[in-house]
Simulated assay, not measured.
Amino acid sequence: MAINIYDSVNQLEKDLRQSDQYQALVDVFKKIDADEEVSKLMDEFKKIQKDFVEKQQRGEHFNEEDQQRAMDSSKKMQENEITKELLAAEFQLNTLLQDINEAIYKPIRELYE
C-alpha cells in the first residue's frame, strides 16, 4: 500500500503549530507587538541583520560604525526581558525542529552506515 508522504507532512505542520514550543513563540511575538519599545528594538535588530547580509552578498565588510551598531543592538536585545524570552523560545523551537530533522533523515542516514 502506497503512503502519501505529503499527508504526513501536512499533519506534522498542524502538530507543530499546536506544540508548546511553537505556542510559546507565538505568545512572545504577541508581547513584542504589544510593546512599542520592544517592537522598535526588534525592527532595528532585523535591519542591522539585513544590512549585514546585503553587504556580505556584495562582498563588502561591516565597518567599525556598523559593528558598533550591531553590538549595541545585540546588547539591548540581551538586556530586555521580552527579547530574552524570545531567544529562549526560539532555542526551544529550534531544538524541536532539530529532533524532527533527525527523525526525517534517520532512514537515509542508516542506508549510508
Rank of each mutant, 00 (worst) to 15 (best):
L93P: 03
Q11N: 14
E37V: 09
Q78R: 12
D20A: 04
P107T: 15
A24D: 15
I48M: 03
K50Q: 15
T83Y: 09
V53T: 15
R58L: 05
N63D: 01
R69W: 09
E102W: 01
I108N: 07
I108E: 04
P107N: 09
L96G: 06
S39L: 02
V28L: 09
K14Y: 07
E79Y: 09
S74R: 13
D35G: 03
K40W: 01
E44N: 11
V9T: 02
N10H: 13
Q11W: 10
V26I: 13
D7F: 10
I5D: 03
K84G: 06
N63Y: 06
A88K: 15
L41N: 02
Y105H: 14
K55D: 05
I5Q: 08
E13A: 02
K106L: 12
F45W: 06
D15K: 04
A2M: 05
D72Q: 14
I48T: 08
P107S: 12
Y105G: 10
R58C: 03
A70E: 11
Q57A: 00
D66Y: 08
S74Y: 12
A2N: 10
D51L: 04
N10T: 08
Q68C: 06
D15C: 06
S74K: 04
R58D: 03
K106F: 07
S19H: 02
Q23L: 05
Q23C: 10
R69D: 09
I100Y: 00
D15R: 08
N94K: 08
L87N: 10
I104N: 11
M42T: 05
I100P: 03
N10L: 10
K50H: 14
I48S: 00
S19P: 03
R69Q: 14
Q18H: 01
I3C: 01
M1R: 12
K47M: 02
D27L: 13
Y112W: 00
V53W: 12
D43C: 02
E64M: 02
T95Y: 05
K76E: 13
L12C: 05
A2S: 02
V26W: 05
E44A: 05
K55C: 06
E102R: 11
L97S: 00
K47L: 06
I3G: 09
I82W: 11
H61E: 00
I48Y: 06
E79N: 14
L86I: 07
D51R: 07
A88R: 14
S19D: 02
Q57S: 12
E36Q: 04
E44S: 01
D51K: 10
Q92Y: 06
D33E: 13
K14L: 14
N4K: 00
F62E: 08
E113D: 13
K30R: 07
R58M: 01
E64H: 04
Q49V: 14
L41R: 01
E60L: 10
V9Y: 03
D72T: 15
L111H: 14
A103G: 06
R69N: 14
V38L: 00
F45N: 01
S39G: 02
M71S: 04
E37K: 08
S74G: 07
L41G: 10
I82R: 07
Q11D: 09
Q68E: 08
D7K: 15
Q57D: 12
D27H: 14
M71N: 06
K76M: 14
F52E: 15
E110C: 07
D27G: 10
I32M: 09
A103P: 00
D33R: 15
M42N: 00
S73G: 12
R109H: 13
